[in-house]
Write a protein that binds this DNA or RNA. Structure first.
Length: 559
RNA sequence: GCGCCGGUAGCUCAGUGGAUAGAGCAUCAGACUUCGGAUCUGAGGGUCGGGGGUUCGAAUCCCUCCCGGCGUACCA
């Protein structure tokens, strides 16, 4: 990436100016090389002179002049340099460099945008992690897509990523027992038994559906069964059915995990006891009121947290300690947990528990996403209140389609509430961002198709002379294309996958403007220009397809 | 009370300390004998919640106050 070349060149210029006695500073401050919002300020803008001014005891513009004097860059890269405003050094790159990027995109194809900034570091991302006692809801969908696309982005940035779903299936947990009981009651009711359904049971229709399924499949064989055994069996059957259902829905959403990690396995493998023992051994726990506590306040938590209840059962935190310990033991350098807004209170204790285990809490990144509100006809659709309202993730996908659902979940930053406009998501018009972007791709495909239909041989991108590309719309499109690797890197570093939807829209817009201004196949376009534009259009297609692929959204040839 | 997330154009929201704060929608005004008008162009619209501070420079960092959402379990 050219940016890194520029950063290195400026750092070298500063050092050389220092050695020559023209500039004084102790350590080189961090500085930025960025694309200015206003294209009049060049391709890149450097703020080094300004951040260096106070140390150098010189006016920023004077520092800039000194830096410019010592700056060495390949001639084919830099066209000119300007010192502007309070001391910005603005760089105007040679068009030939931009032309080279277009060819580089063709050379790299599907790999364009990928970088190796992650250097193969192993990262484990855990997301969705729903309880195996019900269907996936809309918020799960948001978490699923944030996680899925973040993983795509990290992989593209050179990290080695694993995707994991944590199944909260601790067999003794009250919620799983309640779920099993509800299933048993529904089953017995099917055989005419008058059992009142408990207030705190699972009232969802899917419980009844599954009970009826068991009745059809196995008949009345469980009616006379020992109640304790039956509860255990039904809990297990229900859990497996729910996991299968969740896996199926997620797969239809394009979200596939490397591993479904069951909380119950932490007990089966004795990991929970091991984690507790380790904490005890490190002196991080104490007993009080008959319970075992983690001294989490020592590591910044508000209060100490129970690990083992008075009744002897470990808490959820105890499982979580074991799980995170397990993750580190599997060799992951960095852990990412993606949780809903109701879990933010757990960040402090989870990080504290890692610190207590002797791991740097910095290695765990917890991403909290905010609430999702579905909107139809300008009104909020309240989940589950009225018949016909969308409440399940599977129903959302059915109604708006996988592409729109995925795209819309990434329309906003995770930190913001998300108003999901159901009407807009299915609208076939340019105000629907996913259509707008996909249309740009289809339009490009159409140009290339038309060219072939007219019997034109598509030019070899690597052998085409691109010097005809020079007007504002062309240059602006190319610049946007050159941003792509940087966009991926930034999204990966900041854990902000939503940046890609914005980039996709910016790129699509840039293409539509180009399309409007620069005829490719029309009579009036000379052959040399036509070939250069066909090559540019091809590069735009590759980039658009690559960003859509990262988003898990299809890049249609026709719409 | 404490904690987390928001507060930016009429609406929904971008904006990793930089130059004149952006986009979409909505409103108004334009562009099709043409490669896909599912597109493009232009205009109006802002005390970046209020107030202090940090610095060459703050929507961005710090302090404080106000408003909204969520959380504050020996539930998972």
């Amino acid at each position: 990436m050219v940016k890194h070349v520029l950063i290195a060149a400026f750092a070298r210029a500063a050092e050389q100016a220092k050695n020559a006695g023209k500039l004084h500073f102790e350590t080189l401050p961090t500085f930025t090389v960025e694309r200015p919002a206003n294209p009049a300020y060049g391709d890149f803008s450097v703020n080094l002179a300004m951040v260096l001014a106070s140390q150098a005891k010189m006016a920023p513009r004077q520092v800039a002049n000194t830096l410019a004097e010592f700056l060495q860059l390949p001639e084919r890269l830099l066209e000119r340099l300007e010192i502007a405003g309070p001391g910005f050094i603005n760089l105007y790159l040679a068009p030939t460099w931009l032309h080279e990027v277009v060819q580089e995109i063709h050379r790299q194809g599907d790999a364009y945008g990928r970088t190796d900034v992650g250097k193969g570091a192993r990262v484990l991302a855990e997301y969705v992690s729903a309880n195996p006692n019900g269907p996936l809801s809309i918020p799960h969908g948001r978490g699923a897509i944030i996680g899925d696309v973040l993983c795509n982005v990290l992989a593209a940035a050179g990290y080695e990523v694993s995707r994991e779903f944590y199944v909260n299936d601790a067999a003794t947990s009250t919620q799983m027992v309640r779920f099993g009981e509800s299933l048993v009651i529904r089953y017995l009711q099917e055989f005419g038994q008058q059992i009142e359904f408990p207030e705190d049971g699972y009232h969802g229709g899917y419980v009844l559906d599954f009970a009826q399924h068991i009745k059809e499949r196995d008949g009345d064989k469980y009616v006379a069964m020992n109640p304790a055994e039956r509860l255990e069996l039904f809990t297990q059957m229900g859990k497996e059915a729910m996991i299968d259902w969740q896996r199926e829905v997620l797969a239809s959403f394009g979200v596939v995990f490397d591993r479904w990690f069951c909380e119950s396995s932490l007990f089966a493998e004795n990991d929970v006891a091991k984690g507790l023992a380790l904490l005890q051994q490190r002196g991080e726990t104490y007993e009080s009121d008959g319970a075992v506590w983690l001294a989490s306040t020592k590591y910044g938590d508000d209060k100490d947290r129970p690990l083992v209840r008075t009744n002897g059962r470990p808490t959820y935190l105890a499982s979580d300690v074991a799980y995170h310990l397990n993750k580190f033991e599997r060799g992951y350098q960095t852990l990412i947990d993606i949780w809903g807004p109701d879990h933010h209170g757990y960040i402090a204790r989870t990080k504290a528990s890692l610190a207590a285990l002797g791991f740097s809490p910095e290695r765990l990144h917890v991403l909290i996403y905010q609430v999702v509100r579905l909107m139809r006809n300008g009104e909020y659709v309240m989940g589950g209140k009225r018949k016909g309202d969308i409440i399940l993730l599977s129903e959302l996908i059915e109604q708006v389609g996988r592409d729109a659902a995925r795209y819309f979940f990434l329309l906003r930053s995770a930190d913001s509430d998300l108003n999901f406009d159901l009407d807009l998501a299915v609208k076939e018009s340019p105000d629907n961002p996913v259509y707008y972007v996909q249309y740009a791709h289809a339009r490009i495909a159409s140009i290339l198709r038309t060219a072939e239909e007219r019997g034109l041989t598509l030019p070899d991108p690597l052998a085409t002379d691109l010097t005809p590309l020079g007007n504002e719309a062309e240059i602006s499109l190319i610049r946007r294309l050159t941003d792509f690797p940087e966009e991926i890197t930034t999204a990966a570093e900041l854990f902000e996958p939503h940046r890609l939807t914005r980039y996709a829209q910016d790129l699509a817009r840039e293409f539509h403007v180009f399309y409007d201004r620069c005829p490719v196949l029309k009579e009036e376009t000379p052959e040399a220009t036509r070939n250069a534009r066909l090559t540019l259009v091809g590069a735009a297609k590759i980039t658009l397809r690559n960003v859509l692929t990262l988003l898990g959204v299809s890049a249609p040839e026709r719409m």
